[in-house]
């Protein structure tokens, strides 16, 4: 279960709060969506869960599987099952996708006192996972995300997710920069990864992503606070009426 209690976040060296006393519970195995207008604090929430530098948590806690993860480094959180799918996945020139994935997987396995994967073990796994997600292995021989289209980058993220097998997935505006076909493909990938042991937080501006990734619950984030919660129909309502009702 993900439990966020009274979270207050500002930027480092700036006292203005971006997230104000936010509390949220996502039970294990559920998918919750967070919707909200620009500047409401959606991406900040995603970044703070993953442990990105540059923010100051002035109050509150983020409890994942019974542990407050706020004092953990990003890599410790990754080893603890947290995965942030980036709005704009980064390009890493000169590092092949396979090398990057293997480095990440083995770092996590070492941290969790598991044996690292040998090359054949790793290759078998990556072949299987890419086949499941209909990803061409050739893409992984190229440098991470370099020259990839928006859709390819998101699919590469989903493959990373499938390989690292996290238990808490935060999707930060995964629909950004995707056309409708790419959106479908990416959503299918995410849906394949849904399961009783996997908790997901889907952050989005638009309802359309939620046509494909159907959430158990939808929360409205405005002005740094959860202003309302409901089922998937809340998303449809927001699409019609906009966020004005939640402005204050």
């Amino acid at each position: 279960m993900l439990e966020i209690n009274n979270l207050c976040v500002s930027l480092k060296n700036n006292n203005t709060l971006i997230i104000k006393d936010l509390s949220l519970i996502v039970p294990k195995g559920e998918v919750h969506a967070i919707m909200g207008p620009n500047g409401s604090g959606k991406s900040t929430l995603a970044h703070v869960i993953a442990g990105k530098d540059g923010y100051e948590v002035t109050d509150g806690e983020i409890i994942w599987n019974g542990t407050n993860i706020l004092n953990q480094t990003p890599e410790e959180r990754a080893a603890f099952g947290v995965f942030l799918a980036f709005q704009y996945p980064m390009e890493v020139p000169g590092v092949a996708g396979l090398t990057f994935l293997r480095t990440a997987m083995n770092a996590i396995r070492r941290k969790n006192d598991q044996e690292t994967l040998t090359t054949p073990q790793f290759m078998r796994l990556v072949k299987q996972k890419s086949a499941d997600l209909h990803i061409d292995m050739e893409m992984l021989k190229r440098p991470v995300n370099v020259g990839f289209s928006g859709g390819e980058k998101k699919r590469a993220e989903i493959l990373q997710m499938a390989m690292l097998a996290p238990s808490l997935i935060v999707l930060d505006e995964t629909d950004s920069g995707l056309d409708i076909d790419a959106l479908k493909i990416v959503s299918e990938g995410v849906n394949t990864l849904r399961g009783a042991d996997r908790t997901m937080l889907v952050i989005t501006h638009y309802q359309r992503l939620l046509d494909y990734i159907i959430p158990n619950k939808v929360h409205v984030l405005a002005n740094g606070q959860i202003k309302g919660s409901g089922d998937k129909n809340l998303a449809l309502k927001l699409e019609k009426s906009g966020y004005t009702a939640y402005a204050n």
Partner: peptide, 24 residues
């Protein structure tokens, strides 16, 4: 941060990125 969020420790991430700089 991208590397660290994938579980790669900071020093290893920095080394990977230096290698990436030298790669071409």
């Amino acid at each position: 941060f991208y590397c660290r969020s994938r579980g790669i420790p900071e020093a290893e991430a920095r080394a990977l990125l230096m290698e990436s700089f030298a790669a071409n």
